[in-house]
Amino acid sequence: MPATPSEERVREIIADHLALEGPLLPIFHALQAEYGHVPQLAIPVIAEVLNIGRAEVHGTMSFYHDFREEPAGRHVVKLCRAEACQAAGSDRVADHARETLGVDWHGTTKNGAVTLEPVFCLGLCACGPAAMVDGKVVGLVTKKRFDKIIAEIDA
């Protein structure tokens, strides 16, 4: 389980990146790596340290699909929705996934186990439909293979 965010730790993480040119995205990534999301208490702290407006910090964070304001489920399953995977039948897998998990895109199952995310291309276009399960790539995802993935992580 990720730790509860504290301002002290947030300041340390920010400080680790201040030598970089354009440190904001690396800071968001580091916060999300630590907490599983970008804690909202970090927004005013980042604004203060980088000497930019809170709106600028929030606007930048919310622009990018990757950064979460709230933690995801215990496992994140990303299914590719892009054209090459569609050509290989990803729509059928996606419909099946939403139905069996009982969630729409970006949703988390009631037991908090799985968050389902769409992704537009994982660069696995010659072995689609493609997925990423907790950061690991999976190719040739059929409905059956999807069920197996869920059974393995949900155990």
């Binding site: 970089l20 354009g22 690396p26 990534h29 990018y64 699909h65 990757d66």
Partner: peptide, 9 residues
């Protein structure tokens, strides 16, 4: 340096 994007096409 390597810099990492954040899911914006």
């Amino acid at each position: 340096e390597v810099r990492v994007g954040a899911g914006a096409y």
